[in-house]
């Protein structure tokens, strides 16, 4: 039976981000959140593989207590189980500290075959964790696949690697990083939502993982954010009034101001 884990993250889902003037940190209280968009493609692949080959799917996240809602959403999409890695000491973890915690989690789980991730998070946008987890667990990371088959402890897939398209075979366990648009993530079903609230979520914290002292998100993350600045989207917001013809005329002027002219496409081209 294949044991599939999908790593997800809860991210802010709004463009009205505000910064706390006192400490320069992002205000996270009371803002809308969502599952990181790229992770939906990873979830969909996990669910598809289970439908095709059987096995068990688990959504896993590391994050504050409200990240539980993101896990409920994964359960509603159809994953079998959810794991929430949550502890005050994991807060402010950078990618290295996150990887170190995930290593403890998977060392504890032991029985994992496929760890699927999205390509990047929309908040910090580093994309580093899949590579670092591949180092930490010493298992291969496969990226940019366009087809996949599971066979008896192996995966066969087609991937783009450098400037080549390759057919590869690799023994499980592996990490798969799924690119955007790899598939069409399924919507939530009402039945799924109902089921999601009947299922339990497994929790891991510092103690239950027997974490070493080197784990301390706030104090031992090698990188430190020292300043956060909001970039204002300063725009003119000029409303163009008048008839439809006048509005069209104004757009034509704007287009021409940008050096774009009528071009000749008739005649014997193509």
């Amino acid at each position: 039976m294949v044991n599939i884990f999908v790593l997800i993250k809860q991210v802010p889902g709004t463009h009205n981000l505000e910064i706390d003037k006192k400490n320069g940190a992002l205000i996270r209280e009371g803002i809308e959140t969502m599952i990181n968009p790229d992770d939906l493609y990873a979830l969909e692949l996990g669910l598809k593989l289970k439908e095709r080959y059987g096995g068990n799917t688990t959504a896993l996240t590391m994050g504050p207590s409200q990240a539980e809602f993101a896990l409920r959403e994964c359960l509603a999409m159809g994953v079998d189980e959810a794991i929430h890695v949550c502890d005050q000491i994991f807060a402010y973890s950078d990618t290295l500290q996150t990887t170190l915690v995930l290593k403890e989690v998977f060392d504890k789980i032991k029985n994992y075959d496929l760890i699927i991730t999205g390509s990047q998070t929309s908040d910090s946008s580093t994309g580093q964790v899949p590579y670092q987890l591949s180092e930490a667990l010493d298992i291969p990371l496969i990226t940019d696949i366009f087809s996949i088959e599971l066979k008896n402890g192996f995966v066969q897939c087609q991937r783009n690697f450098g400037h080549e398209s390759q057919n590869i075979q690799v023994e499980l366990p592996i990490i798969l990083r799924v690119r955007k648009h790899f598939n069409k993530p399924r919507p939530l079903s009402l039945l799924g939502i109902k089921k999601a609230f009947e299922k339990g979520i497994k929790k891991f914290d510092f103690n239950s993982l027997n974490c070493p002292d080197s784990i301390d998100g706030c104090n031992k993350s090698p990188t430190r954010v020292v300043k956060t600045e909001k970039i204002s989207l300063q725009r003119k917001n000029e409303i163009i009034k008048g008839t439809i013809t006048e509005k069209i005329q104004k757009i034509i002027e704007i287009i021409q101001e940008h050096g774009i002219e009528k071009i000749w496409v008739g005649g014997a081209h193509e």
């Binding site: 802010p12 463009h15 981000l17 910064i19 992002l26 929309s122 908040d123 910090s124 946008s125 090698p222 990188t223 430190r224 954010v225 020292v226 300043k227 956060t228 600045e229 909001k230 970039i231 989207l233």
Partner: peptide
């Protein structure tokens, strides 16, 4: 500002709405 001759990097986050300055 945060230690002698530290590399201060500037990167976009949150879809570019926010810039963060990071040291190591």
């Amino acid at each position: 500002e945060y230690g002698e001759n530290l590399l201060l990097t500037d990167k976009p986050a949150y879809g570019g709405n926010i810039h963060v300055k990071i040291i190591c």
